[in-house]
Design a protein around this nucleic acid. Structure first.
Length: 566
RNA sequence: UGGGGCGUCGCCAAGCGGUAAGGCACGGGUCUUUGGCACCCGCACUCGGAGGUUCGAAUCCUCCCGCCCCAGCCA
């Protein structure tokens, strides 16, 4: 154990908070919040925010609240509120009993709105939505005051109360903040605070038919909870004056500081909920938890660990610059984690039958294999060896190029933990010419994989005993999109046009070593020389195990092949 | 030619007036019963550009260029 404390990499938000604590702002107290809207599944971009908010709070001996920003019932659903909580917990964070909802504050929010009306700072506007847009002006022209802007306080109070009482049709009126229709910041051109929407809310049912807007509800919710630092993404920077305006207008004692950071983008994928929802709805993926999705549910199913995701979030840093992180970094993080933890195992994805001609037919040996060379504590296991085996088709070439040093006619290689074998004959299908079997011999002196005479071989192959292996389905996943930035539609192509047709390859009949029998759903392994795999959470059964490939191993041979091909 | 924000290596990212950290990727090598892992070496005389201030500038000033966000009764 090292005595040096781990110091997380610096970032501007941590710096701000550290300075605030040092200056005893908020009496040195730090409270953040993670405020998802329950209108979709959480993705890796949310993970960045979750790690930031919970991480910073913990670092400064504060807490992080969990709050659903549920102010738009039309788009929200309990399916999402359940999945979101499960995902945050899975990621490894705990909000104790501090689970809140913006809807918890509807009554309070209403009272504050009444207060603003009484003070002449808010009014009921009866323009249609189209008229409101027209009155708002444009980026370069100021807006015009609504003709309803000068309604009396009493009339506003009466109307607002009747809005709540359900006397008006949806859209007939809205409550607006009276700020400045000429502001160069469009958000301050009398923003809507409440709209009428006869939609059943997943928590408040039909109690309300008016719902507060984000800008109005969010800051007040933060203030009610005593949040000190309200961390959000860059697109809210223009809203900060409004965030501050409401809190100042109400003269609320707790006035949290809003701080914005750049959201995460990842290469070869899309991150917006709208796009992810489209992939799900149009069935380009099997669901929100499809292992190709950048959702936490998808990544969990793919085999990613919470640790690897947290580590990734720490490594990418926090800034205000728009950035797209190379997905290779994410893949590096899971490989790094799995290398330490995953038991090694042998699995043949594309089996090629091998008969060891000089090995007795009825003989079976139990050979000892190391479970994890990175961790001796993980012990060893026995792997059965017999006369008929399967090796990977890719590990044999009849006419190999110079740099290929696996099996080929006349060549000797090692079978991992077993014996040296030499390929004597290639058996082909008479009609198709397809290689259907290899006839080999083994050297009994090399049991365990070492040759007493010091003879070297250039390759070690993984294998399974045909009679003992169990069958499994293996799903090979690749990037969902075939271009680094599918969201960039400047080429005139919709992001869907870049879907990778090879993002999923299903291998229905693979052969894996018998120790994998009964492997529990969610358990992770390294298939030696192949990659990291995870027993599928949904579709795997004891009779027919299903393994998802989380990520391949780094593969320098593949790089050579690719380089030569060019 | 409205407002806001951002520009440091292919991708992230430290740096905050004292002479360019780190990670990923990439290239080379050592080791190897995983073409894995580990380890070693290389990878920005330069910080969007041009001026200026200074003994000294990625850091300060000026102008310019580029990119992103905002005209939901979405969040």
């Amino acid at each position: 154990m090292s005595t040096t404390e781990y110091t997380p990499p610096p970032n501007f938000i941590r710096t701000i908070i550290a300075e605030d604590v040092k200056a005893n702002k908020n009496n040195g107290r730090v409270m953040t919040r993670f405020p998802p809207e329950p209108n979709g599944y959480l993705h890796i971009g949310h993970a960045k925010s979750i790690c930031l908010n919970f991480g910073l709070a913990a670092e400064f001996n504060g807490v992080c609240n969990f709050r659903f920003d549920d102010t738009n019932p039309g788009k929200e659903d309990v399916e999402y509120v359940d999945s979101i909580q499960a995902d945050v917990r899975w990621l490894g964070f705990d909000w104790g009993d501090r689970l809140y909802h913006a809807s918890d504050y509807f009554e309070q929010l209403y009272d504050y709105a009444v207060q603003l009306i009484q003070e002449g700072k808010a009014y009921v506007c009866s323009l249609t939505s189209e008229e409101t847009r027209a009155y708002r002006g444009t980026l370069t022209e100021p807006g015009k005051d609504s003709p309803y802007r000068t309604r009396s306080v009493d009339e506003n109070l009466d109307l607002f109360q009747r809005m709540r009482a359900g006397e008006f049709e949806d859209g007939a009126h809205v409550l607006r903040a009276k700020i400045d229709m000429a502001s160069p910041n469009l958000n301050l051109r009398d923003p809507v605070m409440y709209r009428i929407r006869r939609v059943t809310h997943h928590r408040t049912g039909d109690k309300w038919c008016i719902y507060p807007m984000y800008d109005y509800a969010h800051g007040i919710s933060d203030s009610i909870e005593g949040i000190t630092h309200s961390i959000c993404t860059m697109e809210y920077e223009d809203h900060r004056p409004l965030y501050d305006w409401f809190l100042d207008a109400l003269a609320l004692e707790c006035h949290p500081q809003q701080i914005e950071f750049a959201r995460l983008n990842l290469s070869y994928t899309v991150m917006s909920k709208r796009k992810l929802l489209k992939l799900v709805q149009e069935k380009h993926v099997a669901g929100w938890d499809d292992p190709r999705m950048p959702t936490l549910a998808g990544m969990r199913r793919r085999g990613y660990t919470p640790e690897s995701i947290r580590n990734f979030c720490e490594r990418i840093g926090v800034g205000k610059k728009e950035s797209t992180v190379d997905i290779a970094l994410l893949e590096h993080c899971i490989r790094e984690d799995m290398n330490k933890k995953a038991p090694r195992v042998m699995g043949v994805l594309n089996p090629l039958r091998v008969v060891i001609e000089n090995y007795p037919e009825d003989r079976v040996e139990e050979l000892e294999a190391v479970n994890n060379p990175e961790d001796a504590g993980m012990g060893t296991r026995k792997v059965p060896f017999s006369r008929v085996l399967y090796i990977e088709r890719e590990d044999f070439m009849e006419d190999p190029p110079k740099k290929f040093f696996r099996l080929s006619p006349g060549r000797e290689v090692r079978l991992r933990y077993a014996y040296y074998i030499t390929c004597k004959e290639v058996v082909k299908d008479e009609k198709t010419g397809e290689i259907i079997e290899l006839r080999c011999t083994y050297d009994p002196q090399t049991r365990g994989g070492d040759s007493p005479d010091g003879r070297k071989v250039k390759a070690t192959l993984h294998w399974v005993s045909a009679a003992h292996a169990i069958q499994a389905e293996v799903r090979l996943y690749d990037h969902l999109f075939s271009v680094p930035n599918p969201a960039d539609e400047k080429d005139g192509q919709d992001f869907m046009a870049h879907l990778n047709p090879k993002s999923l390859e299903v291998l229905p009949v693979c052969r894996v070593e018998p120790s994998l029998k009964g492997a529990p759903a969610g358990s992770r392994y390294q298939f030696e020389r192949q990659g990291y795999f995870c027993v599928d959470l949904n579709d795997s059964t004891p009779d027919k195990p299903v393994f998802n490939r989380t990520v391949t191993l780094r593969d320098t041979w593949a790089k050579i092949v690719k380089a030569e091909g060019k």
